[in-house]
Design a protein around this nucleic acid. Structure first.
Lengths: 342, 342
DNA sequence: TGTTTTGTCCAAAGCGGTTTGAAAATGATT
DNA sequence: AATCATTTTCAAACCGCTTTGGACAAAACA
């Protein structure tokens, strides 16, 4: 069933039927009702391919998921971020187009997405401290919103981010207040912008108390269970091991926990741990009482907000870039306690 | 830059240019070369919206991600499955369209996807023991491939699945051979087809040794850390606790491990654990030596295969339904050992 | 030499909508 | 009753490609 057929059945022109369904004013309310009824009756839904060609809009947003060539790791927060973004898109009749790309190919993919008109805008994932994609997307004229920030950007751009620096600053202060002095940081890869900011919050908190960070107590790697285990193991094996760990993700923390237990230590008593919790739906941080003390911020909510921001920008391309900084809450769980006496 | 413009620059008709670029034989090799050169030079890529309308194909595959209304849980294997499928799609010039849907709305969404012609086929995720979506998709005439199976299906359909029953059968036998007699099963929700099959493998192995499964040693819930913890805690607190656990996912196992340690028990000595490992990229089961003894099967590979199967079916709609059963390997890690003497 | 065949190219008709510009029908005004 | 304004409807152009059904020239054949 297409527009022409439906029009024929109604003894109306396609023009009128189209306008009736799209709420244009120049159509008699009575006929509009007739049209609506017939559309429902014949189960008519306008062909999206035709709409897209006619309007010149793709009604779709692109999410490019870069796969690190070396490790083949899919960022575990994607699933929830995308679930959030997807909610927003459904409400607005947009589709979400996912493209999985080996990370060297990203530029080609963006250019093609634009040239072929497959999507109207882009959500930029996993930004780096300096990120060539910002200039690229601006150059090719794609509306886009970054999930995260790009510290070394020169031009304004739209983003949704968590206040990573402040979250880690507060977490560090919390540990310092508990008497911890040797605090280990198990961070993500520090060419990633969020990881860089987290370290800077950590260092700033130490500096404020006149402490200098010990390079041996800082690790930067993929945020996997294995990497978390490795980093924690190494630190706990030092002559002067840390009494507390600041861990960049729930998943690394699982590894860190394993390392702690392998050494016969007890989490929250011998070693305190604070994590950053993205509220991944399949890795909830406990139920009533959180397992881990954590800085918490919902990545799904970030997805909703970023998607909405992008749709707003597409609706009004002349608007100035928008920003949204989310604050993480510091929630107290069972993984932290006062520093053990030396 | 569009086809007409490019044709004008070349002093050719759009017809010829189109044919030259699409490899049709009725065009002089010399002009084909000219066209190709010009296309590259002017950075021409055909508008995908126009192609789609003209050919009547969407060149896109739909993945509908149902969100359980209660728990808002995104299946953690999605990310990797989709990464695999995405690889296949890119190679074939297909897009991947993701739709996030509250699970009651699925039917409406499939019908709309079809009526609007947004996608050419569907990958069906998370099938149930009996699943109305099979009949629905068949009725509306969508080519589709199921990731998993539908035990109570009446008609043939295409699927890619792991031999869950045999995997859990073998895992159980392995534990029995180690002398374990009280084995707990921490399973996914058993209206899900894979979970049902896993339990049946478990029970079959017990039955083969004349053992009857103890209902107190079987749990069925979401495969989250929390649920894994809860189930393991409960079982270990029984008067006659299990000496081994069969756990349906890496994530539940993390919870189970926490429960084991909370009770002061040691994994692999006091309590053996075998998991099913989907090889999630951010939750690798150790490196050289696996942490957990596991039945292992790559969900990413399943994604690749399912996507390819669907593309094949779309290319040849008359073909018979295809099936692909993957065997899981049983890999030995550090989480299992002989049953402790009572 | 005239007729076929083959190799190249093109005009025009879709695909299924939206949108512009004009026509027809109705109502209001004189 | 004639004129003008307002509603309501429609025909046709357009979006940017693919594809059908020739057209035309050169080569092959009779």
């Amino acid at each position: 069933m297409n527009l022409k057929e439906l029009a024929r059945k109604l003894d109306l022109s396609p023009t009128t039927v189209s306008r009736a369904l799209n709420g244009y004013p120049e159509v008699n309310e009575e006929t509009r009702a007739r049209v609506a009824a017939a559309a429902r009756r014949y189960n008519y839904a306008p062909n999206s391919r035709a709409i897209r060609l006619a309007t010149g809009k793709a009604m779709a947003i692109g999410h490019v998921i870069p796969i690190a060539a070396r490790h083949e790791i899919v960022n575990p927060v994607f699933a929830d971020f995308i679930a959030g973004a997807g909610e927003t898109y459904s409400r607005s009749g947009y589709d979400m187009v996912l493209t999985v790309v080996p990370d060297m190919d990203e530029e080609r993919v963006y250019r093609e997405l634009k040239a072929r008109g497959t999507v109207d805008g882009i959500i930029l994932h996993a930004p780096r401290l300096q990120d060539a994609r910002l200039a690229l997307l601006t150059e090719i004229g794609f509306p886009f919103v970054v999930h995260g920030r790009v510290t070394e950007a020169t031009l304004p751009y739209s983003w949704v981010d968590v206040n990573n620096r402040r979250a880690f600053l507060r977490a560090t202060e919390f540990l310092l207040d508990l008497g911890h002095r040797r605090i280990g940081l198990i961070n993500g890869l520090e060419f990633m912008d969020f990881a860089f900011r987290r370290r800077s919050g950590f260092e700033q908190a130490l500096a404020a108390r006149g402490l200098t960070p010990d390079p041996a107590l800082m690790a930067s790697d993929e945020m996997t269970e294995t990497a978390g285990y490795r980093a924690a193991s190494r630190m706990l094996g030092l002559a002067a091991p840390p009494t507390a760990l600041l861990v960049s993700s729930m998943i690394s923390a699982i590894g860190a926990r394993r390392a702690i237990q392998d050494r016969g230590l007890t989490l929250g008593r011998d070693v305190s741990v604070i994590i950053h919790d993205d509220e991944l739906s399949y890795l909830r941080n406990g139920e009533a009482v959180p397992i881990y003390t954590a800085t918490r911020s919902s990545v799904r909510e970030a997805g909703r907000l970023a998607a909405q921001m992008l749709l707003d920008i597409i609706a009004d391309p002349a608007s100035a870039p928008q920003q949204r900084l989310l604050e993480a809450e510091l929630i107290i769980g069972q993984s932290t306690g006062p520093a053990p006496q030396a």
